[in-house]
Nucleic acid binder design. Structure first.
Lengths: 336, 336
DNA sequence: TCACACTTCCAAATCGTTTTGCATCACGGG
DNA sequence: CCCGTGATGCAAAACGATTTGGAAGTGTGA
C-alpha cells in the first residue's frame, strides 16, 4: 500500500520511448539531449508526475540536499527569525532545512544532537551561537558536512563565520546610556557564563565603561541564562545588592523582559528609577511597556547570509574560510 | 574528500569476522543472533563508529525516518511551541522533524510546499491550522505519508485530528466578558477569512453572544490576518466605526497585541475604555501591558499528541481515524 | 568513397543497505 | 541410527537513481 504504485524513472523512460539514461540526462542537464527527445521526456515526466526518489538519488550522489540549523533554544524569537532567513534561501535552492534544539542545560546536549545530524549525512550545518567545543566543530568538519558558525568572534577553527558586530553594538549602547542619558551605576546580566554571545556583549559593555573612565562594578555583573527567567533571577540579584544599579544592561531581550517583570512587581518606575536595555530587537521588544531600548541584531539577514555561504560551499567553493560581519544599530525606545 | 573514508557495513562485518547479513540482524534485531556473535559485532560497530547510511537504508526500507510540520507562520510563537512539542517526541524516536512555512498570503503556498515534502517521501506530515483544501489532504494521503491535522473541527477527510476545544474556549471567554465584566458592545477581529481556526473561534464568540440574547454586531466583525499587523488594521476599522466597541475579542494573541498598539497610540485606556482579549496564551501575552486576558491553547501538548498519533501510524496502526481534543482554560489578566 | 568529428543515445556498473531463501550444525527423541 | 527442529550464519537479490564508456547515427571535407 505504501507508495507501491510510485512512478519510477524506468516508467518515464518507457513512456517517452528512451532509456533511463536519457531521462536522467534530461533532468540533470549533465549531457546534451536533442530538443525533440527532451520535449518527449519532459512531457512524460509531467504526465506521470514523476519525482525522483531522494533516497536512491542520495545513495548514488552522496548528498541529502538537506542542511541543519542547531540552536540552543527554539522558542527564542531570535532563533526563529534566523531559521526563517535560512529557510527562505535554502528552500529556493531545493534544500530542506531541519532546525534542531540543543539546550544549554537540560535535554539532549550539543554532542548528542550533532551525532544525530552527522548520522543523517546532512550536506551542511549552521551552528547557532553556542559554547561549542573545538572538538564539536572538528567533528562536523570531519563528517564531510560544510559548516557555518554564527555569532562568534573566534576566527580559528573550521567553517565560515557570520556574526553581528556585537561588541561594537553593546559598546555604542552603553556609550549612549553613559554619555547621553547620564546613568551612573550600570549593571550587566549575561546568559550562561562564558558562552557566546554573552562574552562578546560583555566585552562591549566593559569597553564602554572603561573608555568613559568608570570602574567596572564587578559585583553588578551576573550570568544567569538567556531567558526571561534568567532575567528575573538576575534582576533579583542586582536589585538586592548593597548598592543597586540605576541601569541594567542585558545580554538579550528576553533577559531584559524578565527584568521588567521584576521592576513591575516591585513597583520600580522604568526608566525613572531603573533603566533596562536588551539586545537583538526581537518582536517582543516593541510589545512590552515600556518598549525596550535595545540593539538590532539582524536575525533574518544573518540566516540568509549563513545559507548563502553554505550553498557556495555545497557548490564546490573550496576557498579559504570567510567571515561576514553585519552592522548593528541602537534602537532608542522608552526603557532607557 | 567528502566522506570518502566512511565506514560501511562490510567494514564492520570484516572487523567482526561475520557476514554483513549478521551485522544487519544484530542492528535491527529482526532475527536472533547468538550472544557471542552479537557482542563481537557490537564491539566492532563501536570501535569503528559505524552509522548506517540513511539514503541506502531508506532506499531499501522505503522510509525516511523524517516527519514534517507545515505551519502558516513560523515566527508565530504558537507554532514554535507546537514544533518544540513535536520534536521532543520525534527526536526520542529517532525521527527527524522538518518544519516548513507555507504563508497564507505571499511566498510559497501550501500546494507548492506539499509538493516538496511529498517529493521527499516523508513518513508523516502534521498540517498545522490551515485552510487546506480537501484536495491537499488527499494528496498527502495518496502519497503514502501518514497525516495528522491540527485545530480543525472538520472530521471527515483523511488523517487523525488534534485540536483544542476552541469554540468552547472562546465561548467561555466571551461569557466572562458579558456576564462578569458587563461589556456591552463586543467586536471581533479574525485572521484570514474563512480559515481555521478563525471559524472555530468566531463560532464560540457567536454562540456566547446569542445565548446572552445579544444581537450579533455584524459590522464589528472583521477578518484581517493572524498577525500583529492584522490586529492594527482591525483595530483601526473597529475604532473608526460609527458606534465603536467597548471590547474587542481577537482570534489570537498577536492580533490582540496589535490592537493594544493602536489603543496606546490613540491614548485609549485598556481595559477602561477598551477591553482586549487574545487567544493561545503565547509567552508575549504576559509580557505586554496590560497583560492579555486570553485562553490557553496548549501548543506544546498539541504537538506532543500529534507526534504520538503519527508515530502510532508509522508503527503500523491501521485503526480508524482518531480525534484528540485538548482542554481549554480562560486566563484572566489585566486587559479585560 | 573514406575518414573524422560531433551528436545522440544506451547498457551496465555502482552507491550501501535490508531481506529472503538456503545451507550448516548441534541436539534430542523415536 | 536417523530425522526433525531450532539456532545460526551466508550469498545474492532487491531498492531506484546517476554516471561512465562506448556504440550508433549524421554531416562535412578531401
Amino acid at each position: 500500500m505504501h507508495g507501491s504504485g510510485r512512478v519510477k524513472i524506468v516508467d518515464v523512460a518507457a513512456a517517452a520511448g528512451v532509456s533511463v539514461t536519457t531521462v536522467s540526462h534530461v533532468i540533470s542537464g549533465r549531457r546534451p539531449v536533442s530538443a525533440t527527445t527532451r520535449a518527449r521526456v519532459e512531457d512524460a515526466v509531467r504526465r506521470l508526475g514523476y519525482q525522483a526518489d531522494p533516497s536512491a538519488r542520495g545513495l548514488r550522489t552522496q548528498r541529502t540536499d538537506t542542511i541543519g540549523l542547531v540552536v540552543p533554544d527554539i522558542t527564542n524569537p531570535f532563533n526563529t527569525e534566523l531559521a526563517a532567513g535560512i529557510q527562505a534561501i535554502a528552500y529556493a535552492r531545493g534544500l530542506l532545512t531541519v532546525v534542531c534544539e540543543a539546550p544549554m542545560t537540560d535535554g539532549p546536549q550539543l554532542p548528542s544532537v550533532l551525532s544525530q545530524l552527522i548520522a543523517r549525512r546532512l550536506d551542511g550545518i549552521v551552528l547557532g551561537r553556542f559554547g561549542a567545543q573545538r572538538a564539536d566543530l572538528d567533528r562536523i568538519a570531519g563528517s564531510g558536512a560544510s559548516l557555518v558558525r554564527l555569532g562568534t568572534r573566534i576566527a580559528d577553527g573550521p567553517g565560515d563565520v557570520v556574526r553581528g558586530a556585537e561588541t561594537e553594538g553593546m559598546r555604542d549602547l552603553v556609550r549612549y546610556l553613559v554619555g547621553e542619558r547620564g546613568y551612573r551605576r550600570i549593571g550587566f546580566i549575561g546568559g550562561e557564563a562564558g558562552v557566546e554571545p554573552g562574552g562578546e556583549r560583555y566585552e562591549g559593555y566593559r569597553q564602554a565603561l572603561t573608555e568613559a573612565g568608570r570602574t567596572l562594578p564587578e559585583e553588578l555583573a551576573v550570568w544567569t541564562g538567556f531567558t526571561r527567567e534568567g532575567g528575573r533571577a538576575g534582576a533579583a540579584l542586582l536589585l538586592d545588592a548593597t548598592e543597586p544599579p540605576d541601569a541594567v544592561v542585558c545580554a538579550n531581550d528576553l533577559i531584559a523582559i524578565g527584568v521588567l517583570d521584576v521592576a513591575r512587581e516591585r513597583g520600580l518606575d522604568v526608566p525613572g528609577r531603573l533603566a533596562v536595555t536588551g539586545y537583538d530587537d526581537i518582536d517582543a521588544a516593541s510589545m512590552v511597556s515600556p518598549a525596550l531600548t535595545t540593539v538590532v541584531n539582524p536575525a533574518r539577514e544573518i540566516g540568509r547570509s549563513a545559507a548563502r555561504l553554505l550553498i557556495d560551499r555545497l557548490d564546490g567553493d573550496e576557498g579559504p574560510a570567510r567571515q561576514v560581519v553585519l552592522t548593528h544599530q541602537v534602537v532608542r525606545r522608552a526603557s532607557a
